[in-house]
Simulated scan of single mutants.
Amino acid sequence: MAKVGLQLYTVREEMEQDFRGTLEKVAELGYKGVEFHTFFGRGADEVKSILDELGLEALGTHTAYRQLLDHLDEEIAYNKRIGNDTLIVPYLTEEERVWDEVFANLKELGRRTREQGAVLCYHNHDFEMTEEVNGKPVFDAMYEAVSADDLQVEMDTCWVHYGGYDPVEYINRYRGRLPIIHLKDMTRDADGKAITAELGVGEVNLTAIADAAIGAGVEWIVVEQDYCAGGKPLESIATSMEWIKKYAAEGAELNV
């Protein structure tokens, strides 16, 4: 049964100001796990103690591509100490998007990660859907170039949608290689640019996506809102959890 987590980037300012207190509020709202993007200078033992006390799982960590290239062993060791075995490449700058080089590096990073009993994932934005390699979206070219043994998929379904593709079709395409999805809603500004939104208030077909993810055996459905227009991220993640609980109450196989 899929579990629901939160990407803590959503509440990054709150985490920086009150690390433990923010995690406590996340747990109180009903999120079962958290995905880190930084640890704000805290040691692994402290983080593990807080997570254990609050009953939260560390489901993954977004770690900068360059940090993984330069300090992979240290990152794996830290994450294992907090109970996490999933490291995720979160974003590539335009300068880093030399795709043949990226694919080769991901193969090597994935191999080294696997040999230490951990998992490497890649998290997409829209540019992996709109840029191409050999006539295919980078998203597909990447996972053809790097084996499933060495690279798993963390699919941000909203960015797949915004990139012009059907997230449900992509979930089904990568089933069996897809431990985590990001569930995210969006509206658009006057120029058509994406504005991330609380679940249920935007244009994304969340129910179809969540149904497909559960059917594909996804382990974690992770809520993320890159920017909260109202300026109150804790209220935003509460609103998104209300959508999750309503969805679960209607019969979805979700652990909430």
Rank of each mutant, 00 (worst) to 15 (best):
R20H: 15
M186V: 13
H123C: 00
E13V: 05
A213Y: 09
N134Q: 13
G43C: 00
Y174N: 09
T239S: 15
A212P: 02
V34P: 08
K184F: 07
R66M: 10
E13A: 07
M155K: 11
K136F: 01
G5S: 12
L54W: 00
A145H: 09
A216N: 10
A194E: 13
Y174Q: 09
L6M: 03
Y122S: 00
V98P: 08
G202I: 08
D18E: 07
L68H: 04
L106P: 02
I221H: 02
E46H: 04
I171L: 10
T10F: 00
V218E: 03
A44T: 04
D226E: 13
H182A: 10
D166V: 10
I171G: 07
R81M: 13
T207K: 15
W99N: 12
M129S: 11
A2G: 06
E74N: 13
C121V: 05
T22G: 03
T22Q: 00
L151H: 09
L59M: 15
V201L: 13
V119F: 07
G202N: 09
K193A: 15
E250R: 12
D126T: 14
Y174A: 07
G164S: 10
H37R: 01
T187L: 15
L8W: 01
R112P: 06
E95W: 02
A104V: 05
E46L: 06
D18C: 06
G202R: 00
G5T: 00
E242Q: 14
V47K: 08
E35K: 03
D100T: 13
K107I: 12
D18K: 02
P90K: 02
Y165K: 12
M142K: 08
R111Y: 03
A249E: 12
H37Q: 09
H37N: 11
T61A: 15
D226C: 00
E253L: 15
T38C: 10
C228W: 03
I214Q: 06
L72R: 11
E57T: 11
V204S: 13
F103D: 01
G215N: 14
V223Y: 05
A148N: 13
R66G: 12
F39T: 13
G164P: 10
I76A: 11
A213C: 07
L120C: 11
H123R: 00
D140Y: 14
H123V: 01
L199K: 00
E242T: 14
V153A: 04
K245M: 11
W99H: 13
G200S: 04
M186K: 08
V4Y: 03
L69V: 10
S147V: 02
G192P: 12
G55Q: 03
A148R: 12
L120F: 01
L151A: 05
L87N: 02
V138I: 14
R188H: 15
M241G: 02
R81I: 05
M155Y: 07
R42D: 01
S240M: 08
E108N: 14
L206Q: 12
L69C: 15
E224W: 04
K184I: 01
L109N: 09
E53Q: 13
K193Y: 13
I76E: 06
N105V: 07
E250W: 00
Q7H: 08
D226Y: 04
V168Y: 09
E203Q: 11
F103Q: 06
T93E: 13
E74L: 13
L109E: 04
E128G: 02
I214K: 05
I237D: 02
Y162V: 15
E235A: 05
N205V: 08
